[in-house]
């Protein structure tokens, strides 16, 4: 599958094109160039490891925002069977920026909820670029409470730049919707597993990510805001986003160190978009393992551990 290339991948792509040309040339002309080709291929391997093994936070952000990166809808197709989508928050409307429903995961019914961005401009507009409104968070909460009623585990997928800021969102209580989710989710007595698959931005991400176990894809990011907003708030200059990304500690490894997430899911070299099937397989295995261990916990123990997980985050000096 031809991938849309990110800037830092271009030297590698050029080298690979050169190799392909050389192979074709040697075949067409019947000249033996195998030594040269081998040397270049070795060089390409080194370059590949060099580029993808040392990704800067900003480069990871560009991977996390890659238009071909698998999103919630793709993972639903690859990891779940018989997904039935449920719509609406029963108060105002249905938010296409958050999808939710019931499906089978390794044969067991679960509730699946996740942010959805678009794959192209048309879908992006329809999905509001993954920026949810209050009705999106309220739909998510409704489905979680329904899952609790029927004893179904909840699996959420986080992929949003943030909660939407607009007149309607304020009028319908964006802050109240998020706060309600944070409060209620701490008491949902079925296992809740959240996976940050792309961008995890601000309260809009957290509003579906108060879980017992938090997974994060290797190239996903999770932060207080997008680096653009961060730069705009602190330095009044959103063009300093790359500088912001460098200090925000938003990569999976940073967040594991800060004990905000529990597990990093390795991605295919270059990112999940290079091989979505492989990415899904790896994620699926970890999800299954996490779910099996959480199901063994009695509800009160589950809630106690979930509370402690968030209760213990914070760094301060006493006295």
């Amino acid at each position: 599958m031809p991938n849309m290339l990110l800037d830092f991948e271009k030297p590698l792509a050029e080298l690979e094109t050169k190799i392909d040309e050389l192979i074709k040339f040697s075949k067409d002309k019947g000249i033996d160039l195998s030594e040269e080709i081998k040397t270049l291929q070795a060089k390409a391997e080194t370059l590949k490891r060099d580029i993808y093994g040392n990704l800067s936070p900003w480069q990871r952000i560009t991977i996390a925002r890659h238009p071909e990166r698998p999103g919630t809808v793709d993972y639903i197709k690859m990891l779940f069977e018989g997904f039935m989508e449920m719509h609406g928050d029963r108060h105002f409307g249905d938010d296409p920026a958050i999808i939710g429903g019931i499906a089978k995961f390794y044969g067991e019914p679960v509730t699946v909820i996740g942010h959805v961005k678009g794959k192209d401009t048309k879908e992006n507009i329809a999905r509001n670029f993954g920026y949810a409104h209050p009705e999106g968070y309220r739909k998510a909460l409704r489905l979680m409470e329904q899952a609790e009623k029927f004893g179904r585990p909840v699996l959420t997928f986080v992929d949003t730049p943030g909660a939407y800021c607009g007149i309607g969102a304020e009028e319908r209580g964006q802050a109240w919707a998020i706060a309600e989710n944070l409060t209620r989710m701490s008491k949902i007595h079925v296992p809740v597993i959240a996976t940050v698959i792309g961008e995890g931005g601000s309260g809009g991400a957290l509003a579906i990510a108060v879980g017992d176990y938090i997974l994060m894809l290797e190239n996903a990011v999770y932060a207080i805001s997008t680096p653009e907003t961060f730069a705009s708030i602190l330095w009044k200059d959103s063009s300093k986003a790359q500088d912001a990304a460098a200090i925000m500690k938003m990569t999976a490894r940073d967040l594991e160190e800060l004990q905000v997430i529990d597990e990093i899911i390795p991605e295919p070299l270059g990112g999940a978009q290079k091989n979505p099937q492989e990415a899904a397989r790896t994620l699926g295995k970890s999800l299954q393992k996490a779910l099996n261990s959480l199901k063994k916990l009695p509800p009160e123990k589950l809630l106690e551990k979930r509370y402690e997980k968030f209760r213990s985050i914070g760094q301060f000096i006493s006295g």
Binding site: I178, A179, L182, T183, R184, S186, K187, S202, G203, L206, V210, Y222, A223, I224, S225, F230, I233, L234, M248, K249, M250, L255, L258, V260, R306, Y307, F310, R311, I313, G314, Q315
Partner: peptide, 20 residues
């Protein structure tokens, strides 16, 4: 903002305590 994701998590922490 200067405390980044750790600040964000305080939202879940305080709301969890309010649920109690």
């Amino acid at each position: 903002m200067q405390e980044g994701i750790v600040s964000l998590m305080q939202m879940a922490k305080t709301c969890g305590a309010l649920a109690k």
